[in-house]
Simulated scan of single mutants.
Amino acid sequence: MNYTLHQLQVFLKITQTKSITKAAEELHLTQPAVSIQLKNLQEQFEIPLTEIIGRKLHVTDFGKELAVAAEKILNEVHAINFKTLAHKGLLSGRLKLSVVSTGKYVMPYFLSGFLKQHAGVELVMDVTNKSKVLECLENNETDFALVSILPEHLKVSNVELMQNKLYLVGRELEGDGSRHHGIELFEKLPLIYREPGSGTRLTMERFISSNKISVGKKIELTSNEAVKQALLAGIGYSIMPLIGIKNELNQKDLKIIPVDGLPLITSWNLIWLHNKSFSPVAEAYLNYIQQEKSSIIQKHFDWVDKYKD
């Protein structure tokens, strides 16, 4: 046997994604490069690791067993690397975060300085919707989660990072003249919603329900980027977090439409399970956030203040 750690890493990613294309995307490799690594690994075993049925890749039982072993081996390699750095007096280990999809516009700025200070820290960040973020947190699969709505069913501790303002956004209304509108405007517009489980959708639905708004045409899309592209195409309007549309507002491709009761204001919170036992890396990161959050906000998010309530 002469397989390499790189081959095991590629194979493990293939088993996780069930796709050579998706594995290549997540590993930042070309599709042919991933196929070659799989072929080279397969040549060392007489039993098939994968099979193609109806153009779909399936992992064999033997392949699944090898994937479990590969993950253990790779985890041990990571542990050796971390211990080497620790003996040098450097902070090392994995920092695991689960972030709601719109949080991708926020979280990197609260990470970059910490990662630059500690080269031995490996970041693992999953970006998904609110329901999956909370599921990951509840299963103790992550150190911290970033959410804009605090969970009611979990006992968590939190650090509030910054405000999250949501406005009605879209292409300019005909004959609008930048005038202020009453909430009855919502009944005249095609509204675009995020998918169920999204924190943005929950905030939007609470506003519409509390104001007894009768929604006409309703469109549902499964990501913040998909909603934004639909708005740019003039398909409809949506209540969106300001943080995700900075460039579109600056370029005047989208416009905030003033409406009674808006903006809706929530807060970005870094949360963790109450009484969680932190790793040295997680504890160091929490200390960093508590000390540096004000300067991070001032440096990267001062533009938010020009959009007054």
Rank of each mutant, 00 (worst) to 15 (best):
T15Y: 06
E141A: 08
F144G: 11
I20M: 04
I36E: 13
N275C: 06
L262I: 00
I265N: 03
G54P: 04
K116W: 01
Q290A: 06
Q44M: 15
P190V: 11
L185H: 08
L231I: 03
N40H: 13
K18Q: 15
I36W: 12
G177Q: 13
I239N: 00
L91Y: 10
K212L: 10
A24L: 08
I47Q: 14
K217A: 09
L189H: 05
R194W: 10
K96L: 12
P151S: 08
F186D: 07
L146H: 12
I192H: 02
G89Q: 03
H181D: 06
Q251N: 14
E71K: 05
K218T: 04
K165E: 14
H58G: 01
E65S: 14
H6M: 10
K155G: 14
E220D: 12
E292W: 08
S131W: 05
D305I: 03
L134A: 10
I14P: 01
A79R: 14
G93K: 06
L262T: 00
M125S: 14
K217I: 05
I52L: 14
L137S: 02
Q16P: 07
F301C: 04
L232D: 04
G199A: 14
E122S: 11
Y167S: 00
F114P: 03
N140L: 06
V124Y: 09
Q117G: 02
W303Y: 09
L85K: 15
G170R: 01
E76M: 11
L95M: 05
R171V: 03
K293A: 01
G177D: 13
K228G: 02
L202G: 08
H180N: 12
Q251A: 14
I192Y: 00
F82K: 03
R201K: 09
K18D: 15
P48K: 05
P48Q: 13
F110V: 01
S112P: 10
T4M: 06
Q42D: 14
I256E: 01
L146S: 13
M204I: 02
Y167W: 11
L191C: 05
F207D: 00
G261H: 03
Q229T: 06
N250I: 03
N2V: 03
E187C: 11
Q117F: 02
Q291V: 08
P280D: 11
E43D: 15
L27S: 07
Y237W: 07
F207E: 03
K56V: 04
L221F: 09
F62D: 07
H300L: 06
K246G: 00
I296R: 04
V156F: 12
K155Y: 15
S214Q: 13
K218S: 11
K18T: 15
M1Y: 05
N247A: 13
L166G: 05
L221G: 05
E187W: 04
L29T: 05
G199S: 15
M240W: 06
G261L: 10
G170I: 00
N2E: 04
N250V: 04
K22S: 08
V99C: 10
K56D: 06
H6Q: 15
Y167H: 10
I257D: 03
K130F: 13
P190F: 07
I36Q: 15
I213R: 12
F114H: 00
Q251D: 13
T203H: 07
H58R: 12
K246I: 00
K306C: 10
H87W: 11
S295V: 07
F144S: 11
D302K: 14
L134C: 07
Q298V: 02
L173V: 04
L49F: 01
P32I: 12
Y167G: 01
L185Y: 07
S279D: 08
D61L: 09
L173I: 08
R94L: 07
